[in-house]
């Protein structure tokens, strides 16, 4: 009945898919096969598999892993405790507000906080330790990234915990499970979907963030994202940049498959 109207309404949407979803990916793949003069070549892939790039990929992975790990370790208990508070949605709102503040501003704040004369060093000095440069270290990079991702990790975990039927917990407790066993065997498995989407929204951006590495880590930390930005906007080597982007896309697909929610797993 409404089919004609509906099909017509799909037109701009499909045009969008074609132009901004399919075409860009195709272009990235196409450019990854071009050298600086625009001739077809596989040399970009060859240089990607050189030790320097392999090492960069692994360090990028390692940082992303650490960032995701610490974010999860801090966020899960927070989300868990939030669901136990009285006005939980108000508290969740308060967690979300900082995520609305521009990313750049939050990162910029840490330039001051971690600076040589910043508050952290002032506190350290009270304990008689020499102040030292915290900025431009991998610690500062990981700390700021974790700080940025915490709200994004809390939201999905909070939602899945919130949906959890509390009678399941009572049942487990009645059947003699300790609170730790209840958590390990009941609560955590039932909220794993939230954890997975939290990991998705943390790990992939953690691989590709380049402004935090530039502002906070100086040029100490090079992630895949920094490398792409470097190739595209500094070296103007779009071919190499696209090759790294292709690998980032492949990694992303793998992560999506690993953390993807199976449909119909839980009624």
């Amino acid at each position: 009945m409404t089919n004609r109207v509906s099909k017509g309404s799909l037109f701009p949407y499909c045009l969008w898919i074609l132009l901004f979803v399919i075409a860009p990916i195709a272009l990235i793949v196409y450019y990854s096969l071009l050298d600086l003069e625009g001739k077809f070549t596989l040399s970009n892939y060859q240089s990607f598999f050189s030790p320097a790039y392999i090492k960069m990929t692994f360090t990028s992975f390692w940082y992303a892993f650490l960032i995701t790990f610490f974010t999860l370790v801090i966020s899960y208990p927070t989300a868990y405790l939030l669901t136990k508070t009285k006005h939980k949605h108000l508290w969740l709102m308060l967690i979300i507000i900082p995520s609305w503040i521009n990313l750049l501003l939050k990162t910029y704040a840490f330039i001051g906080i971690f600076g040589l004369y910043g508050p952290i060093n002032a506190v350290v000095e009270v304990f008689g330790i020499e102040p030292k440069q915290i900025l431009f270290t991998d610690f500062s990079f990981i700390f700021v990234s974790v700080y940025i991702f915490i709200p994004f990790m809390i939201i999905p975990i909070f939602n899945s915990l919130d949906k959890l039927n509390p009678t399941l917990i009572y049942a487990a407790r009645d059947l003699g499970a300790s609170s730790f066993t209840t958590f390990r065997r009941v609560v955590f498995p039932l909220t794993i979907d939230g954890v997975k989407s939290g990991i998705q929204v943390t790990f992939i951006p953690a691989l590709s963030l380049f402004m935090i590495t530039r502002l906070i880590a100086g040029n100490q930390v090079i992630t895949l994202g920094t490398a792409i930005e470097q190739q595209f906007l500094v070296s103007q080597n779009w071919g190499m940049g696209s090759t790294i982007a292709v690998f980032l896309i492949i990694i992303m697909i793998i992560i999506m498959l690993v953390t993807g929610q199976r449909k119909g797993g839980r009624a």
Binding site: L19, F20, A23, P24, I25, L27, I28, Y31, Q200, I204, P205, L207, S208, F210, L224, G225, I228, E229, F232, W238, G241, S242, A245, L248, I249, M252, M256
Partner: peptide, 14 residues
């Protein structure tokens, strides 16, 4: 789900 660097780079090419 695409990293924004990839979106930015591919749109730049486009």
């Amino acid at each position: 789900v695409s990293p924004d660097v990839v979106i930015g780079a591919s749109f730049l090419i486009l």
